[in-house]
């Protein structure tokens, strides 16, 4: 019921303000900070540790990390903006052990390029501030590399597995613009990204069924500059 009321509110706002629309185009670049669920891959780390004949420790495990992106939006209506957004995320994990005899590490490198459609609705404008509700949804293309290394003395072994995948995501967020100059604004947003569909496969052999997939779901905090034409 709440969702229905929210949709009705947005549509009403769009339709009510549409008469005053002055078409504009704006570009933005943002940098952000995000957390990543990666629950499957954390589970994978635990499995690896369980299978090792020696004790190993988690050194990193998909720690919150920076992300970058850019977008352009066209003002369809007076308060409604729509346009594509690209973002780049990366994270990773490491577990391992190191002693006098050698070192073992199991690293997971993940980065994702997401391309989505970013919709923004200006809820309110107060002085130089404007407040927006935004929804971004699209496709994320993930590259996933697992790199295990064992080095004992002068002898070393290394195994690398490369995988790739995609996911459908949805990122609802709330943004605040502060107009620094007439055309240039400082933009900040906070939201939560949800991976809806996740699929992954080995690059070398796509027949292998992957049961643990990257999950980029997590909090998204961004700060950027937006230029408006």
């Amino acid at each position: 019921m709440k969702k229905i009321l929210l949709i009705l509110f947005i549509l009403n706002s769009v339709l009510a303000e549409g008469q005053e629309t002055i078409s504009k185009l704006r570009f933005g670049i943002t940098g952000g900070f995000g957390t990543f669920s990666q629950s499957d891959l954390k589970s994978l780390n635990q499995t690896v540790m369980d299978q090792l004949p020696f004790d190993a420790k988690i050194v990193d495990e998909f720690e919150p990390n920076f992300n970058f992106g850019g977008y352009t939006q066209y003002q369809l209506f007076n308060r409604f903006w729509l346009g594509p957004e690209y973002r780049y995320y990366y994270t990773g994990s490491r577990l391992g052990q190191k002693d006098y005899s050698g070192v073992y590490s199991f690293d997971q490198y993940l980065h994702s390029h997401t391309v989505g459609l970013k919709m923004g609705y200006v809820v309110a404008e107060i002085d130089r501030f404007s407040f927006q509700f935004q929804v971004n949804s699209g496709v994320g293309f993930t590259k996933w590399k697992m790199d295990s290394k064992l080095k004992i003395g002068e002898e070393s072994e290394n195994q690398i597995d490369n995988l790739k995948g995609f996911s459908w995501y949805a990122l609802p967020s709330f943004a605040v613009n502060y107009k620094i100059f007439d055309n240039l604004s400082l933009v900040g947003s906070a939201g939560y990204s949800i991976d809806l569909i996740k699929k992954c496969k080995y690059e070398a052999n796509s027949d292998i069924k992957i049961v643990k997939n990257p999950d980029w779901s997590g909090l998204r905090l961004t700060l950027g500059l937006e230029y408006e034409l």
Binding site: D60, Y90, T91, G92, S105, H111
Partner: peptide
Amino acid sequence: CEYSPSEI
């Protein structure tokens, strides 16, 4: 940019 693992 890419994930840079910490030293073990």
